[in-house]
Design a protein around this nucleic acid. Sequence first.
DNA 1: TCAAAAGTGTTAAATATACACCCATGT
DNA 2: ACATGGGTGTATATTTAACACTTTTGA
Lengths: 236, 236
Amino acid sequence: MDVKKFLEEGEQHYLPNLSVDIVILGYQNGILKVLLQKLNDKWCLPGGYVGIKETVTDAAIRVLEERTGLKQSYLQLFRVFGDANRSFSKEFEVILKKEGYAWHKDLWINKRFVTLAHYALVDIETVFPNGGIFSLAYDWYAIEELPEMHMDHSAIVVASKEQLQKDITVSPISFKLLPTTFTMPELQKLHETILDKKLERSRFQKKMLAMEIFDRLPKTKDNAQGRKPYLYKFKN
Amino acid sequence: MDVKKFLEEGEQHYLPNLSVDIVILGYQNGILKVLLQKLNDKWCLPGGYVGIKETVTDAAIRVLEERTGLKQSYLQLFRVFGDANRSFSKEFEVILKKEGYAWHKDLWINKRFVTLAHYALVDIETVFPNGGIFSLAYDWYAIEELPEMHMDHSAIVVASKEQLQKDITVSPISFKLLPTTFTMPELQKLHETILDKKLERSRFQKKMLAMEIFDRLPKTKDNAQGRKPYLYKFKN
DNA sequence: TCAAAAGTGTTAAATATACACCCATGT
DNA sequence: ACATGGGTGTATATTTAACACTTTTGA
C-alpha cells in the first residue's frame, strides 16, 4: 500500500483510534535488543492498525510478519496503553509535510490512539527487517540503551522487559530468542541478561533439564577453552 | 444521559469500536457472584465506552462507579477480546425497536467492538447496583450458574475467574471480596470457592499470617458452635 | 599438566505438607 | 463434659540454595 492511499483510504480499512505496537525482542552478543524504526528524528516501535474485519491477534501477527518476515514467533499482548492524549499527530505533521504529502489535522492517523502493546521473541538471525511505509530506517537497539523515542514508546519497551522478566520465571519461553540449537551456558547467560542478575550454574541447569522440554544433542565447540557444552533443542 | 442523545451523539463523545467490560465479582453465602444486567432477553456484563478525552483506566473506573456506586475497588484489565465480528447490532436492533427508538444499522453502537475486559473485586454488601440506561434489570448471578448471555460475555466471565485464580495465588487481593473485617476461616472458604478445591487449614492460616498484611482484632461470634475465630482487617 | 569451563553430586536451608494436639465455646 | 470448630505445634517430605567435586578440553 502506498502512503497516499493509506492516508486517504486507511480509515475505511482499519479500526479508528486503535493501534497495535510490538516490542520485537532479539538477543545478540549477550545483549537483549529491540527492533526499532526511525520516524522523523526519533525512533518508534513497529506498529500497525487493526483491519475492520481482522482479529486483534491476527493484526499483531500480520504486523510482526510485515516487519520481520517471520510467520511463527512467540507473540503476546501484555498491556494496553490508553492515555487520553496518545497521538502521533505532531510526528505525522512533520514527516508528511517533509515528504510532500497533503497533511491536514483531521487525518485519521492524527487522532488519539489506544494501543495494544505486544512483545515478540525472535531469533534475531532469522529476521529480515522491514521498516514499513513511513520509516526512514530501522535498526536493532540494546534495550538498555534506547535512542530518543516518540511518545510513550520507550515506556512500552521498559514495560515489555518487566513483563518478560515475570514470564520467563513462570514459563519456558526464553529459548525463542535463541537459534534452534543452543547450550545451557548460553541459555543461562540469556536469563541473566533478561533478569539483570547472576544465576547459579548448577541450579539453573537442573531446573531447565527437570522440565524435560529440551533434547540433548552432541556437543558444540564454540568455546575458547574448557569443556565443550552439550547442544540442546526444544522438543517438538 | 438519555438514550436518544446517547445514540445520536455518542460517537462524538466516545472512541468508536472500543468498549470496556467489567466482570464485577462479589462473594455472598459462600458463592462467587457476578453482577449482570439484562438486555433484551439475555444478560450481559456491565460495560461502557471510553470518552474521547478519557484514559482507558478512567473509563473503567467510571463504569464501575456508575454500576456499583463504588469509588475505590480492586479493578484490573485482564484481557482484550478482539474477534472480527464482535458486535451488539442484533441485540440493539431488537431492544431499540421495542423501546421505540429510531434504529438504523449505521448507528455507531452497532459496529464491531474490541473490548477491554476488566474484573473488579467488591464487597457485595456495599454495592448499590445500577443497570445503566439500556438494561431492564440487574442481578447477582452465581459464577457457576450463569444465565444465557449475549455474544462472548459468558466467555469473558469464565476467563476472569481463571485470571482471578492465578492472581490470588500470587498476590493477596482476595480480601477485597470480603467486608473490612473477616476471619481466617472465612478467607479460607473464599479461596476454596475461587480455586474450586479444599485447602489445608493450618497451612492456609500460616501462609496468610506470614505475609503480615493483616491486623488481628478481637473475636467474632457468628459461628454456630466451636471456638470463635479472630477477626482480621487489612493493614492500612 | 594446568587452567578454564561444563557437568554432576552432596549437604544445608527453607518451604510445603500432613497431621496431631490443645483451646474456646455452645449445648 | 463433650462435640465442634479454631489456633498452633511438630514431624516429614519436597524444593531451593550453596558449594564442592569431577570431567573435558585447549594451551
